[in-house]
């Protein structure tokens, strides 16, 4: 059958569209010029400016603290949720599934706003603590979905076999379930960490004045047009980190598949 020539043309155009801004940004990060309208020679000055900026380092530290905390908590909650959804069929699990699934479709803005209202109503101090609670909340759903997909991939009779061979419940979890789940857990953790590090909207609503994370810092730099070329440099570094993370998670998920 003669295939339409449209799809490949559109695909090529879409890929150019997706990558053009990123490529221009990356090129400008090495441009000596301040406004990036013309090329004035190769330079690392924006990288040096970025590395010398104490506020950015503080924001990075806050992002890492929240990211690690939210990743660990959401891994525990999300894995347990996935096991519950996988093993049990009941009305409780239908409600559970709806609760796990809904945060994936709700716009960030609404989640940030509703959490802000909750924290204000409870009289909580806005800061890194509330950011951690908010990030864990949206990460749980992503972790649960990734781990659930992994659980659906393997044969449940392995666990029964282990029980029949005399393993206690804790031994089954530690020696059979966790090793089988490990790649899925690592991929879920990586996803949760990336989402947490990247989140701006929800963080902006619940952070309060002191708790500046990296995206909040980038936003205020853009909004007040301060240190703009340094954002180019920062985005190249973040792009490199993203690329590594995507590759790692693909490796983890595809590793032992045929």
């Amino acid at each position: 059958m003669r295939r339409s020539r449209w799809p490949p043309v559109v695909t090529a155009a879409v890929l150019v569209f997706l990558w053009l801004p990123i490529a221009v940004l990356a090129a400008n990060s090495f441009n000596r010029s301040r406004f990036g309208s013309s090329w004035e020679g190769l330079s690392l000055r924006w990288y040096r400016a970025l590395l010398a900026d104490a506020d950015t380092w503080r924001a990075l530290r806050n992002s890492l603290v929240v990211g690690v905390g939210a990743t660990l908590t959401s891994l525990a909650l999300g894995t347990s949720a996935a096991v519950a959804l996988h093993r049990h069929r009941s009305r409780l699990q239908r409600l559970h599934y709806a609760l796990v699934y809904s945060p994936l479709v709700v716009p960030d803005l609404l989640m940030g706003m509703s959490l802000l209202v909750l924290f204000v109503a409870l009289g909580a101090d806005l800061g890194l603590g509330t950011v951690y609670l908010a990030h864990t909340t949206f990460c749980v759903s992503y972790v649960a979905m990734v781990v659930l997909a992994r659980l659906q991939d393997f044969d449940p009779s392995i666990l029964e076999a282990a029980r029949d061979l005399g393993a206690g419940r804790w031994t089954v979890v530690r020696r059979v379930l966790l090793p089988l789940l490990a790649p899925g857990l690592a991929a879920a953790g990586l996803l949760a960490f990336t989402l947490s590090i990247d989140d701006f909207v929800i963080t902006f609503f619940v952070a309060g004045p002191g708790a500046t994370t990296l995206p909040v810092r980038v936003y205020s730099m853009i909004k007040h047009s301060r240190n703009l070329p340094a954002i180019n440099a920062l985005s190249v570094l973040m792009l490199a980190a993203t690329f590594t993370a995507v590759r790692a998670s693909r490796r983890l998920l595809q590793e032992d598949r045929p």
Binding site: L15, L18, W19, L20, P21, I22, V24, L25, N28, G36, T194, D198, F200, P215, V218, Y219, I222, I231, N232, L234, S235, M238, L239, T242, F243, A245, V246, R250
Partner: peptide, 21 residues
């Protein structure tokens, strides 16, 4: 991979890139 990487890239930075363009 070419479709997914921009999707994983920081959202703010992608918006910033368009501001520059």
């Amino acid at each position: 991979l070419l479709v997914v990487v921009p999707f994983w890239t920081s959202f703010l930075i992608r918006v910033f890139a368009w501001r520059m363009l």
